[in-house]
Design a protein around this nucleic acid. Structure first.
Length: 250
DNA sequence: CCCCAGGTTGTAG
DNA sequence: CTACAACATGGG
């Protein structure tokens, strides 16, 4: 089983915000305290089921097949060489939505602080939407994101996420973008990391930078250009994101 | 003081 | 339709 747990858990995906690292282990509260680690390449876990881990780390994805698609160009080949074993992850849609509402015009360390502050109010668990609506959030220092999160929580409490997983990608994206604070980028992140739509290709500043620098592609043409990696645009995006952060530091 | 961060929104042209 | 300042906060 090809897996680099550390890369996967610390690559700007929801688990980086939802889990905490102690030494080389990762933990969070689920029904009880869950823990994840790797010993000699072998994945170990406690406090959660095998099915849970398999789903969150997408262990069913055939990385070698995916690499075959990504490696059609030299840039992604280099990214695959550098980040072999990095997997996409799948988290709870509501948790994913909150995390990426926190991500708006922010940075990884602060996103994590915000998410952990929100979960800290509920014993380390993500508060249910109807709880978050009424919660005192000043202490989480969410800034202008607080009203987005509160208003989105109200809509989710009224069923805004119900049935999203049954829609096709474009319909689901349109639905998500009805939520306050959810634009194209956040919607695609939720679809990719919270619903598992591998055709999603979220465009943040790093991806925009990478597409221009490596491929000479302007922002408007990114989505269609990314079709070269179909049906694994989401994987291409994650590897490109990591490569850009390593090679294109401003 | 400046600019940037896994952006979105409202407004003006 | 496109362009762009404002939005809160913290780090560099």
């Amino acid at each position: 089983m090809l897996l680099n747990l550390r890369l996967t858990m610390e690559s700007g995906q929801p688990p980086e915000f939802l889990w905490q690292r102690r030494g080389s282990r990762y933990f969070r509260m689920l029904e009880t305290r869950a823990e994840l680690w790797q010993e000699g390449g072998k994945l170990r876990y406690s406090g959660c089921s095998h099915e849970y881990v398999r789903r969150m780390l997408r262990l069913g994805d055939e990385l070698e097949e995916i690499y075959g698609v990504l490696c059609r160009d030299e840039v992604l080949s280099r990214a695959v060489r550098s980040f072999r074993g990095l997997r996409l992850t799948l988290s709870d849609p509501w948790e994913t939505l909150v995390a990426f509402l926190c991500s708006v015009n922010s940075n990884i360390p602060r996103i994590k602080r915000c998410v952990q502050a929100i979960m800290g109010m509920a014993g380390g668990r993500m508060p249910a939407p109807e709880v978050l609506v009424e919660a005192e959030l000043k202490h989480a220092r969410l800034g202008f994101r607080e009203k987005f999160i509160r208003r989105s929580a109200a809509m989710v409490a009224e069923g805004a996420l119900y049935g999203i997983e049954k829609l096709d990608f474009q319909e689901a994206k349109r639905e998500l973008m009805n939520l306050p604070g959810v634009g194209e980028k956040v919607a695609e992140c939720v679809l990719l990391f919270g619903y598992g739509f591998l055709e999603a290709f979220p465009v943040d500043v790093w991806i925009a930078r990478a597409m221009r620098h490596y491929f000479g592609v302007a922002p408007r043409r990114i989505a269609s250009f990314a079709e070269r990696w179909e049906p694994y645009q989401g994987y291409a995006q994650q590897y490109l994101y990591m490569l850009a952060r390593e090679e294109l530091k401003p």
